[in-house]
Write a protein that binds this DNA or RNA. Sequence first.
DNA 1: GAACGCAAAACCCGAATGGGGGTTTTCGCG
DNA 2: CGCGAAAACCCCCATTCGGGTTTTGCGTTC
Lengths: 210, 210
Amino acid sequence: MSVEPYQIRVLAVDDHPIVRQGIASLVGIQTDMVLVGEASNGRDAVQQFRNLMPDVTLLDLRMPEMTGLDALIAIRKDIPNARIIVLTTYAGDMQILRALKAGAQAYLLKNTLHTDLMQTIRAVHAGRKALSPEATYEIAEHATDDVLSPAEVLVLRLIAAGNANKDIADSLSIAEETVKSRVKSILSKLGANDRTHAAMIGLKRGIIEL
Amino acid sequence: MSVEPYQIRVLAVDDHPIVRQGIASLVGIQTDMVLVGEASNGRDAVQQFRNLMPDVTLLDLRMPEMTGLDALIAIRKDIPNARIIVLTTYAGDMQILRALKAGAQAYLLKNTLHTDLMQTIRAVHAGRKALSPEATYEIAEHATDDVLSPAEVLVLRLIAAGNANKDIADSLSIAEETVKSRVKSILSKLGANDRTHAAMIGLKRGIIEL
DNA sequence: GAACGCAAAACCCGAATGGGGGTTTTCGCG
DNA sequence: CGCGAAAACCCCCATTCGGGTTTTGCGTTC
């Protein structure tokens, strides 16, 4: 039995055991990779990364305890050249952009084929970057759109929670009229008919979470 | 090498190759099960079920081409005693209830542990039923709630799409006043502050889809 | 320190919303 | 066939929403 001299050391982070099992099984088949660890939430992911120093990390975004995005940020703060592939179900353009800005080398959807996933691991390990077609499309789709300001995102979140402008004003300690101008701006930037539409678009695009 | 005389024949349906790989790998380890087929959408699932007649089917709900729920209904129409385990990410009570009404024997979330999943396959094959704790909780949580009528669900969908009452009236060919009374009823049944809140609750509870 | 840019705040106002009633019509089911 | 429950339609009315416009205030830049 020959031992591979150079193997890519992979860390898998996902809150679904079945997905981790799938990754483990796929990586196990490859002769040039080895799975060195698993984590089921963001906190564990950061911990595991520190301990294991993997070459490539597969990271889901939606997780309990600590978001994949927060884990990504924490890891890259520790080790700025960490190689991380975001592997998730969801493709809102804002979600993708934030992950890339936080230093992800690749963004793949879970409907990616086995072979593409393995190729991406090798590519990222070699220092290249990758985006799934859907991710590319989503970003291109909204490339020319105005981006919501942090203040506007706050208002949008409160809108989605079912608050009236007055309530939003109170909980943000600003004038109701200010809220109204922000709402107007949100509707215009998102191309929404009304606040309900805006909330749904915000969800679809990964600007707010359910 | 001994051949197991009685193996549970399993069909895996999920649009994520990685998840199917995980199931394949887990089922492969068990001596009393064998994976006989896979499908990546609802249409294929129905097809595969007819061809293979598996003992137990693992079925995701969110899939392209044809919903898992529709596939479930189609399969149970063909073979009324088909044993199907819904294995999905999402736990809105309405989604769960519809799956159970359509004849699913079990409803598991993907964060289920390996061992629990395997046990559930055996249990369902033996004719028993199973619900994940989260599913049970969701159902109990809303057990006493009034259920939206089909007409109300239609209106809620159009609300979420950003339509005004007048537009909803037009596209459903009913009077605006009718729409208004349905909206009132929806808000009351869901305990929502306004239509936006209602749309978000509808999403959370699996009454409408994004 | 003048000019600029921009978020916050203010005002107006017509239209949409949602909370109260209510009546008629339809339909499923015993 | 009739009963009861939905669904559909209707009216009133206070409030909220969303569009347009303007003013204030504050920091930046030149």
